[in-house]
Design a binder for these strands. Structure first.
Lengths: 202, 202, 202, 202
DNA sequence: CTCTAATCGAGACGGTACGTCCAGTCTTTCT
DNA sequence: AGAAAGACTGGACGTACCGTCTCGATTAGAG
């Protein structure tokens, strides 16, 4: 977002005095702090405006709702933080990636934003749809990469259901994070990877 | 809940002879309908009171917040609807139970309540804790039953990690319901059961 | 009356044939205290019930509203405290009586009740009517007595408008108490008496 | 900064450019009507808001309570309606003014507001103080004017207690209005004026 | 010397209004 | 034109009392 001065007029800045970028940054930073400090319910537009030193109207001008601000704040963090490694070995790639996913969901700031959005998506089908098309499907594609490479290398038998594989290893992590609240340890994620491999390469 | 045909209507003159069962039932029924009809955000105390034909104060007298009403409404529905069958065969028990779980989460009214509570729990750690101790741990125990029986029957090797087994088959269902929004078909749940069995009984 | 009752019959709890004198007294006493302590607005039925250790229903059983309790509490205090003296001399009678009226209105507990009722009567025509027929007309008759006696003694000319005379001396006192809030001193009331006499006996 | 040449636009940038005069007027007019129609107890903030077509918050933004609205509504009505005439003759001035006062208190809409405030002031010392300093003392000064002019003209002896004179003629009117409820006729007010003059100019 | 009906305490009930908070829109002033 | 400020309508919040209503316990006269 920094200085995309190029022909990217799709975005919504466009102030001839150039001050809107200040406001935009202030809002996105405030939103992160306030989410951590006051929780999702305490994240009101008025509070964001006050904390960012920005007028409410300025927020409404650019973001339809507070979840849009969060989506914006989430930004490309997912893509940045959760790209799986490529060591040429499925077990190693999988173990590292699952550990990274767990860490992101449980401790990263962007992970808190992600969890809040997932939570809100349960009440708001529109948000759910947007979240899926804008973030989750992309992440799913990244999660698939290690399996695709392994298939290409012959580590997995042809015809393996790669999407199913992703769900098999990623699903339990989200289940712990979102539902049971059990800690997502390295042992747990390693076991997930190992269990998958055991079932595919007897 | 059942039919208060009670041998219990006298007795115990401490106070509160008076809690109105009618009011309680009306609120819990209204809450279910309104959640489906207006969504979680549209589920206001005032709307519940109006729909149930009850005074707001009566609601506040017995429930601290709307999520408490939902917890109450969820009540025994989980236990009633999601008790796994016992056919003496793990594959069959598992296939049926996972299908029932999927159906509950995606189509049942009580499933909508469950999803709303899970969503809200992402914003509210207290609710998360309560939800886990009051409902989810109990459901986890029920989900474990087929595995326990299979272990006793010798269908599973001694020392099998039963909790991990539950997470392995239940996790992906929740992942679809809560995160990706992909449809949870019978094929999907059957495949989960089969994949688990394949990995354990080579 | 209380001669024979045994020492621990304080608790009453119901009697088919008679109301509880304890409850009545407790309410009337509580009402006085609460009016002074919390003002008229803070004088709620619930607060009276709590302070008197009595159930709300018991209050509603015997008094239609809180102003009725106040009317009851005012009782015969007016008649008891504001009977004009009879020294056979109008000036002396008048001076003493006006001073007594002033003292009652400004400092007596019953005077506070009276002022509260007069205040409420400005908002409530029914109360105004009852207050007038039950209390104020009687007091007006008492206020007239010194003039009637003086007329009979020949201190006032035949045909003197006695009601007008009462209003002439009593009116300014109420005007200070209810409207201007100026202190009603002995000098003031004496001057009222003297001014009346000066105008009638040139 | 210092660019603006206009004399007083330099102040407080952004503080209530916006107070809506429409809203203010609508509230003050509604309050008059509703007081007459529903009485003081029926004069709720919610009803005022509804009748004025204004949000409750707008009322609370500008007035701390309903009595403050009434004080505002009373506003200049007193000064407008109750300025005594100046014919150069005390008897005529007094007769006319007292009749006007009586008419105001008994029949005018603003008179109803005044009576309600006086009534409420009996329960609320703060209101009493405010009412006196903001309205009653000013009215007392106006009531004094005829006497001051008469004194200057030599119609009254030097050293006459003018405040006492006001109380002598105004007090009985308020006494009838607030306490006895007797009708305040033209005969009554004329007699008050005449009686005063008889006592001062024997 | 029990029966019974009005009374008592307690407090839950359907309501109304309170005063506060925030959403989302609109207007005004300054830059 | 866009930003800060903030007033506006609207609506839900959670609280306080209202006046009504059971409820079991109490109690004195009638039977």
């Amino acid at each position: 977002m920094g200085h995309t001065t190029s022909p990217d007029t799709r975005r919504h800045h466009g102030n001839r005095y150039g001050r809107s970028e200040d406001a935009r940054r202030a809002v996105l930073e405030a939103v992160d702090d306030l989410l951590v400090e006051h929780g999702f319910a305490g994240l009101t537009i008025e509070r964001i405006a006050a904390a960012a030193g920005v007028a409410k109207q300025t927020i409404y001008r650019w973001w339809p709702s507070k979840v849009d601000i969060l989506l914006d704040a989430l930004g490309d963090d997912l893509a940045e933080e959760l790209v799986p490694p490529d060591h040429g070995d499925l077990r190693r790639d999988l173990r590292e990636h699952l550990a990274a996913v767990a860490l992101f969901l449980t401790t990263a700031d962007a992970g808190a934003v992600f969890r809040a959005l997932i939570g809100q998506a349960q009440h708001d089908p529109d948000l759910a749809a947007r979240l899926r098309t804008e973030q989750i499907s992309g992440q799913h594609a990244r999660d698939r990469l290690p399996f695709e490479r392994a298939l290409a290398r012959g580590e997995l038998p042809a015809g393996t259901d790669l999407d199913g594989a992703v769900e098999q290893v990623i699903g339990p992590i989200h289940y712990r994070v979102l539902v049971t609240g059990a800690p997502v340890t390295r042992e747990f994620t390693d076991a997930l990877a190992d269990r998958f491999l055991a079932s595919r390469r007897p």
